[in-house]
Design a protein around this nucleic acid. Structure first.
Length: 769
DNA sequence: CACTCATTT
């Protein structure tokens, strides 16, 4: 061990941080808040926490956060393990890590690496973080939602516990902002170790906007030019999504097949003979084994060309990349508080992202980055990517803050405050879910909801299911929905696609997706949780595997809160001639009654209901009044936008295969909605209007105007007048509701305009400083 | 016939 230990110590002394060890230690001793700029390859993540342990014994417990688990486990989990070895200890004793489903710490652990989500959760329970003497926020430049909330909390904590050492570690982006936020604290800079990257701009593309329609083809062309004219080194091409990538891979492979390498490849030094291209797609939803190939070395005489999404920008590092092709675009999600929907749009990247993408070419040797846009376009880009907190639903965040008794959430000290409407939207939703009261204070129910690692809506559903006596079933469905990953695969080969459709139909429940999920779970369990069965039925094993983990975690929480897990009532299937066991049936030919299950879901999603148009497979959102989803013109925009079923929905499938008729559909509830080029619903089940009427959700909606959800002063007389007026309007609207749905056809044009407006707004939000 | 980038408790 001692030889290895000595070797490791020797290696440590060659890292760029080593030179600054004493200065760093002095700075940490002197200042309680410090910003550290550490470039890639400086060794900051592994070394600085160790310096604290070695030189500052009075600081007993050190917590270091990372934005992703992948960093804590695979690639860089090595760092928890590595640091342990460097300290001559076993992982989990002196040095450990704590991520969801995997806590590797003990009472003796001094240094713990964790995800920022874990620390945020701990902070909700103990805002002063009394357990720790040092908190290190690593990769702060990534500005995850969790990091941003932690910033605000740490600033508060600092006032109450000035002795807590706070270290903000970031790559060289926007650090003055961090220092300003933490009272102009000192900034410490450590150089990194990367190779120079030459940036090559496209000369014939005047504006980024003009290449938007053609960037895939242009990216393929550029990559091909590099492949045929540049010396050795692999190529990484940044595109936006699975479809782009698959198209690009196909086009590039075709060129590769058509090419006479001996004649056409100008610059060639892969040894002897003819070179070939090894083309790989890379995106997060790719199966693990498919992803693995990307990280293997190319065969002799081959050049690796990887077409990737943004995963390759931050989450994974591919060895051997010397050329980067940057399309200049990214698919970005942004939550629109006016409609309550996520927009997923192809948008221009920021300068910071462009720089980061280019940097991927210089990890192993000097490299080149080809931008498909010109320098002027680069200069006109936003300097930084809009932080996640300004384009996400803040439902969970606001619930967490309310749990910490922060009533005035609007004025919480965010480093980059989100738009007020974003916070207000979350406040209203939380009130409707009964998580906060009229005064904006957390309710008992809200406290319970916050215990669950779920979106507040799903947590509410789970709690409702306990009262409705079907928590066993709802727990399963909730676990499957929590990850929002695709359960059913959609293979690209035609024969396979047909097979996959058949499987989906076989597993489908007539009420829609929620019960279908339950069917899938039961079948999977029936088959001994087999991976083979998943493969044969075109089901994502990963989804069921994580659902299984989530389920046991949720069960622990339910136990702690003394919530009962109750099996729902069964219904007897009508006698059929065949003795074959039906999907979802038990051994006695009984199946789960869908009614209590769906009513539980409606408790959390009663605002997500829609009604089908007369003769088309299009739905119209039901907005009981303008408090949810309203535009400044006072028109409920969601109500005007046509909602579509996602092609993977059970109902959509059954409609296609004529298993059910359009006329059988009336009201539906959805758990998820996203704009791409239209509004698409996922997680859709049939419901009855009676259930909506019987719930107390509608009454709460009417009470909204008299609430003070951010702890504002008493409502004025004027507001009460407004409330009375709105009450009347709501009643009128209720009556006109059915009639107004018939106007759907007429409002088709307006809807198209609305969609356009919403997209414009999403883009404008990006543009806004 | 049209489909969701990336994270995480």
């Amino acid at each position: 061990m001692s030889t290895k230990y000595n070797q490791l110590q020797e290696q440590r002394s060659h890292l760029p941080t080593f030179e600054y060890k004493q200065d760093l230690v002095d700075a940490i001793r002197e200042y309680n808040i410090l910003v550290i700029i550490g470039e890639t390859g400086s060794g900051k993540t592994t070394q600085i926490p160790q310096y604290i342990m070695e030189e500052l014994p009075e600081l007993k417990k050190v917590g270091v956060t990372q934005p992703r688990r992948i960093a804590a486990i695979t690639g860089k989990f090595q760092f928890a393990k590595r640091v342990s070895e460097e300290q001559g200890e076993r992982l989990g004793s002196l040095v450990g890590y704590n991520i969801r489903f995997d806590d590797r710490t003990s009472v003796d652990t001094r240094l713990v690496y964790m995800t920022d989500g874990i620390l945020l959760r701990e902070a909700t329970m103990d805002p002063c973080l009394n357990k720790y003497d040092v908190i290190v926020i690593d990769e702060a430049h990534e500005r995850t939602l969790e990091t941003d909330v932690l910033f605000g909390l740490l600033k508060q904590t600092h006032r109450q516990r000035p002795d807590l050492k706070i270290l903000i570690m970031s790559a060289t982006l926007d650090v003055a902002k961090f220092s300003d936020f933490f009272g102009e604290c000192p900034i410490f800079e450590i150089p990194g170790r990367t190779y120079p990257v030459k940036v090559v701009y496209s000369l014939d593309a005047p504006k980024l906007a003009t290449i938007k329609s053609a960037f895939v083809d242009r990216a393929v062309e550029t990559a091909w030019t590099i492949h045929t004219q540049q010396p050795e080194g692999d190529i990484l091409v940044f595109l936006t999504g699975q479809q782009d990538i698959e198209r690009a891979c196909k086009a590039f492979s075709q060129k590769d097949r058509d090419c006479d390498y001996r004649r056409q490849v100008k610059f060639y030094n892969h040894g002897d003979g003819v070179s070939r291209a090894a083309v790989y797609p890379l995106f997060a939803s790719l199966e693990t084994f498919e992803q693995k190939a990307v990280f293997e070395l190319p065969r002799q005489g081959e050049r690796k060309i990887v077409f990737a999404t943004n995963v390759a920008q931050t989450s994974v590092t591919i060895p051997g990349i010397r050329y980067v092709v940057d399309s200049g675009f990214v698919k970005e999600k942004s939550f629109d508080p006016n409609t309550g929907m996520d927009a997923l749009l192809v948008t221009e990247i920021s300068q910071a992202a462009a720089i980061q993408r280019a940097g991927r070419a210089g990890r192993t040797a000097p490299g080149k980055a080809y931008r498909l846009y010109n320098q002027e376009s680069f200069e006109r880009m936003e300097p930084n990517t809009i932080p996640e907190i300004q384009r996400s639903s803040l439902l969970g965040t606001v619930l967490a803050l309310k749990t910490m008794n922060i009533v005035d959430v609007i004025n919480f000290e965010f480093i980059d405050p989100p738009e007020e409407t974003l916070v207000k939207n979350a406040l209203k939703q939380l009130y409707l879910l009964e998580a906060i009261d009229e005064e904006g204070k957390i309710t008992k129910l809200g406290v319970k909801m916050n215990h669950f690692p779920l979106s507040p809506c799903l947590a509410r559903v789970l709690l409702a299911s306990v009262d409705l006596q079907c928590s066993y079933e709802v727990l399963i469905i909730t676990s499957m929905l929590a990850g929002d990953m695709e359960l059913f695969k959609s293979p690209r080969k035609e024969e396979e696609a047909i097979e996959a459709e058949k499987c989906k139909i076989k597993l489908a429940h007539h009420t829609g997706d929620h019960m279908t999920y339950l069917n899938v779970w039961h079948e999977w369990k029936w088959r001994g949780k087999s991976r083979k069965w998943c493969k044969e039925n075109y089901i994502n094993y990963k989804v069921l595997e994580t659902a299984s983990n989530v389920r046991s975690q949720l069960m622990d929480v339910m136990d702690k809160l003394s919530l009962k897990i109750i099996k729902g009532p069964l219904i007897k299937r009508k006698k059929s001639k065949s003795s074959k066991r039906h999907i979802g049936d038990n051994d006695h030919g009984e199946s789960v009654d869908p009614v209590p299950v769906l009513r539980s879901f409606l408790t959390g999603y009663f605002t997500n209901i829609a009604n089908k148009a007369a003769h088309r497979s299009v739905f119209s959102h039901y907005a009981p009044d303008e408090h949810l989803g309203r535009t400044s013109a006072g028109v409920s925009s969601t109500a005007l936008v046509a909602l579509h079923l996602h092609p993977l929905c059970a109902l959509s499938n059954m409609l296609d295969k004529a298993k059910i008729q359009y006329s059988e559909l009336d009201w539906i509830m959805y758990t998820n909605i996203t704009y791409t080029n239209k509004a698409v619903m996922k997680g859709v089940s049939k419901i009855l209007w009676d259930w909506v009427k019987q719930g107390d959700g509608q009454a709460r909606i009417r009470k909204l105007p008299q609430t003070r959800l951010n702890g504002e002063a008493q409502p004025s007389v004027e507001a009460e007048d407004l409330q009375a007026k709105q009450k009347q309007q709501a009643a009128e609207k209720e009556q006109n509701n059915i009639a107004s749905l018939k106007d759907l056809e007429e409002s088709k044009k307006r809807r198209a305009e609305e969609i356009d407006m919403i997209r414009q707004r999403a883009l404008a939000r990006r543009k806004k400083e």
